[in-house]
């Protein structure tokens, strides 16, 4: 029997995560390379339309809907995911490299005795074994990793592969596997409501010390809201408590790779660049023409943010 590819698909509030749809498109593309099928795995109760995952190219959706699954328990989740993949003859597992996958995917890899590539950025090449490219040195280089095992686990970086719709509907297969008893109890969740999570954002507007104080963040927030972008900041800004820690992007904060990154009043220290240099288009607005960030930028404006930003905001409004 042919092996197939299994893509772990995350959902939230009745929707599939966009990053998981990227992982599905990636898994489907690998399946096409190998001439095999790709299937999705969804865990937990959801109102998200499971058969519709077929339009991204998966043949089956395995829905594991056992009661009382503690999705925050990496042990529980890895037991379940590894069990499904073994039962259903899947030798390649794809995850989006999300915060939760970072806790689960390596455990699954160990359970399955699978070689793992974390943070893949491109489709595998099969000329000389199974080789996958991943980012290393905080985005400053790419390495090619050869997987030596027959089973493979890959986590795909956000925004590294485009979601592709091919049309079609998937067969939904409900699976009931009893989850092992969990010894982790979640006692609280604090979600920041109404914001676009930075790790999932396609566009990001980010501010630095050049904005002079938290009272001036209206400029960042207004442009972000007009563009449907998330807001971010430099380390200096989060250290000064002008903005919350979860907005800090850079070497010690979050590494992101949106399609558009607009940096306002950020000089572009190497540690900041390490977190954002994988963004597809980088715009830098800074009054210092010597700011190192301009060297990493695609578009730049040398000017005072307080004069330039209102004009940009107006121009975006004029786009309608």
């Amino acid at each position: 029997m042919n092996m197939s590819i299994l893509i772990y698909t995350e959902h939230q509030e009745g929707k599939f995560k966009k990053n998981s749809l990227e992982a599905i498109s990636y898994g489907v593309a690998i399946a096409a390379q190998k001439g095999i099928d790709a299937h999705a795995l969804v865990i937990g109760e959801t109102t998200a339309p499971l058969p519709e995952l077929g339009k991204y190219g998966v043949k089956k959706v395995y829905h594991l809907n056992t009661a009382n699954i503690n999705i925050s328990d990496t042990k529980t989740m890895s037991v379940l995911i590894a069990s499904v993949s073994t039962q259903q003859n899947c030798d390649t597992l794809i995850f989006s490299n999300t915060l939760s996958a970072k806790g689960i995917a390596p455990r699954v890899a160990v359970r399955l005795k699978a070689g793992m590539v974390s943070g893949a950025v491109d489709l595998p090449e099969n000329n000389n074994g199974f080789c996958v490219k991943k980012n290393v040195f905080s985005g400053k280089a790419v390495t090619e990793i050869k997987v030596l095992t027959s089973k493979i686990v890959i986590t795909l970086n956000a925004n590294a592969f485009e979601v592709k719709e091919t049309g079609g509907s998937a067969e939904v297969i409900t699976i009931d596997i009893s989850a092992p008893a969990s010894t982790i109890t979640v006692t609280g969740i604090n979600k920041i409501a109404g914001e676009i999570p930075l790790s999932e954002a396609e566009k990001v507007v980010s501010g630095g010390r050049g904005l002079k104080g938290p009272e001036n963040w209206g400029l960042i927030e207004e442009l972000a809201s007009l563009l449907g972008a998330a807001t971010a900041c430099s380390r200096a800004v989060s250290d000064a408590h002008w903005r919350p820690h979860h907005e800090h992007v850079g070497q010690t904060g979050l590494a992101i790779s949106p399609n558009l990154y607009i940096a306002v009043g950020i000089s572009g220290a190497i540690q900041h660049l390490a977190g954002v240099n994988r963004s597809k288009t980088i715009v830098v607005i800074n009054k210092d023409p010597e700011a190192p960030f301009f060297k990493a930028a695609d578009y730049g404006i040398v000017g005072d943010a307080f004069e330039v930003m209102p004009k940009i905001i107006q121009a975006v409004k004029d786009l309608g």
Partner: peptide
């Protein structure tokens, strides 16, 4: 389970 084949530097930006 895995080995490193090689490294690549990203292509330099075309310029701002």
């Amino acid at each position: 389970y895995t080995e490193t084949v090689g490294f690549l530097l990203p292509p330099p930006k075309a310029g701002v």
